[in-house]
Design a protein around this nucleic acid. Structure first.
Lengths: 345, 345
DNA sequence: GTGAAAGCGCTAACAT
DNA sequence: ATGTTAGCGCTTTCAC
């Protein structure tokens, strides 16, 4: 059973390919094709279940109905959830997703953008690594819709969706300060990305405003989790004065909890804890961990809205939009000073 | 800066398109094109950074270098991890991933297979919902490489990679029986899929072999997690004789832990727990939860190997291969009977 | 109102 | 050994 082509349809109906094409693309009226012919074509097409080849169409039009989604790592629960939401919204609009993980590797990302470009993807959703602003700018300059998220590239002129990293970290640090902690550490992955530097500087300004000491541990990301746990564990052992920790990312927080468990340190009695991002682990840990929760649904919603806006050549703004969303504290038990513990129950 | 086409290359070099094409496709020798010409072409191609359009090539050859990956839900950590591993292996072989979540929806999956077919994906990796065996068989009959995983379709003639669900559940149940528990429940998502029925029957045979009572709760999957937690919570409240639970899936296990926490039931003193799949939550819970861990890396590795085998038309076996992998117990504290608790420390 | 034909960029059978 | 050419299936300009 060979797949039908538009020529088969045209032959069968004794009309030309172009007529069929016009009908299929909703240009029948514009071309003043008779109602009668239109319905005859539509009926037959439905009857034999013909659908135009997106590949041939893509070759001709340069459009693909595919959106390229590049995340740091699809196995990260944050990105996996975003991906799921984006996919289902995009699917409803007739777009498919071609996706890949960048591993925050600049070269890999460049190659990936090229791959997507060759495939004529219609739009890009990217959580970019550092150093790809030139490629991004080339894309937007060529009129391609691009939405950045989770972090931004200072010199890239693309739409972006981020959270208020700096004030979130500032407020979280304040929360710990207000609980009376004075030796507060910030533990995170080393990274030049804007979301990380924002979190770091939010932490720092809260600390410095209070005249306290800055304690920062930057972990190099390592696929071998045990080695990262060891790093945190060592740091904590060597800095016994630390009485509270703000973790800058969910993976850092999880490593931290594993390190604290290993060291037999009690939360919050020995060390108070707040972590960026929310996760089942934080909800179920004993005690439950106070978290800075990102509005995942809204992030995904904004991303896809921005992209669709650019995809539909209506009133597309030349200027790029930067959207900053607010986080939400999930206040639980892990940040409460033991002096207040009784009261808090 | 217009993108170059093969014609531009040919003109520049004063040769024909086919010559360039042959060189590019490694058929120079076969076509006895002079070494000199070959290197002249290669040099120029590299110089101007020309890469053939995969779309045009796809239209002509019917190949796309794209693998379609359909998982139940990309936001599920199990599938997200598998996806990550598959993607990186596929990427190295020059394949891109087009992916989507089926939500276990039969109709959606059928439509998705059609979408993939239209796009000429070269191979399919699917964790199938029930009821798509006809579509799968049509694919394999047409010579398309298809690898099923996580569950299989009894009447589908495709390669598959699964774990030994039945014996894993059997052994886990035995483990609880050997600890002296006598009212063991099996809590899982309702599903007609083979992996779930396998787990259920493994549980049942262990229970019945011992003459104990069968206690099964099948939760209807619901995106609203709270309602699922409530279901588990109600069940546990109404069946206070239950002293141990085997959870049939990671999400069920997490819901279960939340319900147990809510009910203030101690693990393992009030209720012992074992869950399918491993997860950070299980490692970090107090006490750590005994889990039946799937060999994620090996699963992904086998999937991609099977697919590549079929993709490279070497000695492709007509007969389909069913691979069954073993799980591994992560023995922790949650399944230990309190009578043995002292000893176990 | 409808159709013929060019062409998107590539591959491969067929000539030479 | 290398070139010519006919498509792959579709869209779209232009002619009737």
């Amino acid at each position: 059973m060979k797949k039908l082509s538009i020529a088969d349809i045209a032959n069968h109906l004794n009309v030309s390919k172009s007529t069929v094409s016009f009908v299929l693309n909703g240009r029948a009226e514009e071309k003043r094709i008779s109602k009668e012919l239109v319905s005859r074509v539509e009926k037959f097409v439905k009857e034999v279940g013909y659908t135009p080849s997106p590949i041939a169409r893509g070759l001709r039009t340069g459009k693909s109905n595919i959106i390229g989604l590049m995340v740091e790592s699809i196995s990260d629960p944050f990105f996996a959830n975003i991906a799921k939401l984006i996919e289902s919204r995009a699917y409803k609009k007739g777009y498919r997703i071609l996706y890949c993980s960048t591993d925050n590797d600049t070269e890999k990302t460049r190659a990936l953008i090229e791959v997507f470009r060759e495939r004529n993807v219609d739009g890009y959703i990217i959580s970019p690594p550092v150093g790809v602003e030139d490629e991004i700018n080339a894309l937007t300059k060529a009129g391609m819709p691009v939405v950045l998220f989770d972090r931004s590239l200072p010199n890239a002129g693309a739409d972006s969706v981020e959270i208020n990293n700096e004030s979130s970290a500032f407020n979280a640090t304040r929360l710990l300060i207000d609980q009376g902690f004075t030796n507060i550490a910030f533990i995170t992955f080393s990274s030049l990305l804007t979301q990380m530097s924002g979190r770091l500087s939010g932490y720092k300004s809260a600390i410095e405003q209070e005249g306290l000491g800055v304690n920062v541990l930057e972990i190099d990301y390592n696929p071998d989790e045990d080695s990262m746990i060891q790093t945190v564990s060592n740091y904590l052992s060597e800095n016994k004065h630390i009485d509270a920790v703000l973790f800058g990312a969910v993976q850092a927080g999880i490593c931290g909890l594993k390190a604290l468990t290993e060291l037999n340190l009690k939360i919050p009695e020995d060390v108070a804890v707040i972590s960026f991002d929310d996760h089942d682990v934080f909800k179920l840990f004993a005690p439950p961990i106070t978290a800075i929760s990102q509005p995942i649904e809204e992030i995904a919603g904004r991303i896809i809205s921005l992209l669709l806006e650019r995809l539909n050549p209506g009133q597309s703004h030349a200027v790029s939009q930067k959207i900053i969303l607010n986080t939400e504290f999930k206040l639980r038990r892990s940040h409460v000073n033991k002096r207040f513990l009784r009261k808090a129950e």
